[in-house]
C-alpha cells in the first residue's frame, strides 16, 4: 500500500511550489508545453519555467481575459498551454473566456489557479479564492482537480498535461503536510481511501485532507471508527467511492477550503442522493474572510481538524 499507514504528517512544500517544479520537468520532456502568465510568475512559481524556456513563456501583463483566450489559440494550434494566475483572478476575470473559448469548443487548455482558499492569509478577501470550484465545476467538459500535497500535485500536473481536454488545477499558497509516499499512484477521477472506518467518512480535498487525518485520530480515540477519503478530482467525481462510503459508513462529512455553496460538498451530496442517501455535514467557508495568519484564519473560519471532528460527531449522532 503506497499511502502512508501511519500519518505523522511532516510539513512539506506548498502545492504551488510542487506545481512550478513539476512544470519545469514537464517542459524538458514535452516541447509543446507552454506557459502564459499575468504578472504573478514569482507567486504562481512558473518563473522557473520562464527561466529555462523563455521562448515558450508568454508574459501577458495584468490581463487575465486576454491570457485565457490566448491559451485557447495556442491549444487550437497544437500546444499544451498552462495558463496560471491567482485562482481569484483567472477564474473570475477569465470566466467568460473559459466558457466561450475553452469549455464550449472543448479546447485543451490547462488553467492553474494558485493562492486558493483563505489560507493565503494577510492579503485578505480580494485575493482569496473561495468561489473558484463553483465556477470551474459549472463548465461542461472541464476536469477540476485540487491536490492535497506536493506529491499529489506533482502527479496531477503530469496527468493534466496528458489529459485531452480542459483542466482546472487548484493550488495553495501555504506549506502543507505531506500526505503521500512518493510512489503513490494517482488517476483523474479516482478518490483515495487513506484510512478505513465504519462509523463516518471524512471526504476532503486540498489542505483539508491533512486536517481530516488529524480529525480521524481524535475521533478514533473517542471510539468513532472514521474513514478518510481524499477526493483530488472534484469533477468528474468518483461517484463509486462516494456511494461506497454512504453505504458502508452511513454518514459523510465533506471538508473543503471553499464556499460550502459550491465545490466538493455539493457534488458529493448530489452523488449521495442519486445512490445511497445518508447523513451529511459540510465544513467550509460561508462568507468572505479577512486578513490574518493562515492558521488563525482557518481556525476562526472553522476549517480545522476540530471542526471536522465536531461535524463528524453531529453526523454520527444524527444517524441514530
Amino acid at each position: 500500500m503506497a499511502a502512508k499507514t501511519k500519518f505523522d504528517l511532516k510539513m512539506g512544500s506548498a502545492t504551488r511550489e510542487a506545481f512550478g517544479k513539476t512544470l519545469v520537468q514537464l517542459g524538458r520532456e514535452n516541447k509543446d508545453v507552454v506557459v502564459c502568465d499575468a504578472d504573478l510568475s514569482k507567486s504562481t512559481m512558473v518563473h522557473w519555467f520562464a527561466q529555462e524556456f523563455p521562448g515558450r513563456f508568454f508574459t501577458c501583463g495584468i490581463a487575465e481575459a486576454n491570457m485565457v483566450a490566448i491559451g485557447a489559440g495556442l491549444a487550437s494550434a497544437g500546444k499544451i498551454p498552462f495558463v496560471a494566475s491567482f485562482s481569484a483572478f483567472v477564474l473570475t476575470k477569465g470566466f467568460e473566456q473559459l466558457r466561450v473559448t475553452v469549455a464550449y469548443p472543448n479546447v485543451n487548455v490547462k488553467v492553474v489557479g494558485t493562492h486558493s482558499g483563505i489560507s493565503i492569509g494577510e492579503d485578505g478577501p480580494s485575493q482569496m479564492s473561495i468561489e473558484d470550484l463553483s465556477l470551474a465545476t459549472a463548465l461542461p467538459g472541464f476536469t477540476v482537480i485540487s491536490p492535497a500535497d506536493e506529491v499529489s500535485m506533482a502527479a496531477f500536473v503530469r496527468l493534466a498535461a496528458s489529459h485531452d481536454g480542459p483542466v482546472f488545477l487548484r493550488a495553495g499558497r501555504a506549506k502543507v503536510p505531506v500526505v503521500y509516499n512518493p510512489d503513490q499512484q494517482f488517476a483523474i477521477g479516482k478518490a483515495i481511501e487513506l484510512i478505513d472506518g465504519s462509523d463516518v467518512t471524512l471526504m476532503a480535498h486540498g489542505l483539508m485532507v491533512a486536517e481530516s487525518l488529524r480529525a480521524a485520530e481524535i475521533l478514533e480515540a473517542e471510539g468513532i471508527s472514521t474513514r478518510v477519503v481524499d477526493v483530488p478530482t472534484i469533477k468528474p467525481l468518483d461517484t463509486g467511492a462516494v456511494a461506497k462510503a454512504a453505504r458502508e459508513t452511513g454518514a459523510i462529512v465533506v471538508g473543503e477550503e471553499h464556499l460550502v455553496d459550491g465545490g466538493l460538498g455539493v457534488k458529493v451530496a448530489q452523488a449521495v442522493t442519486q445512490s445511497h442517501p445518508c447523513v451529511m455535514e459540510f465544513v467550509g467557508v460561508t462568507t468572505y474572510a479577512e486578513s490574518g495568519t493562515p492558521e488563525g484564519l482557518l481556525q476562526k473560519y472553522g476549517m480545522t481538524a476540530a471542526n471536522m471532528a465536531a461535524a463528524a460527531r453531529r453526523a454520527v449522532a444524527r444517524k441514530k
Partner: peptide
Amino acid sequence: TGSLGQGLSVAIGMGLA
C-alpha cells in the same frame, strides 16, 4: 465565436504557436 472581444486573443495564440 459569438461572445464579442475574444477572437483577437485566440488569433494571437495561434500566431504565437
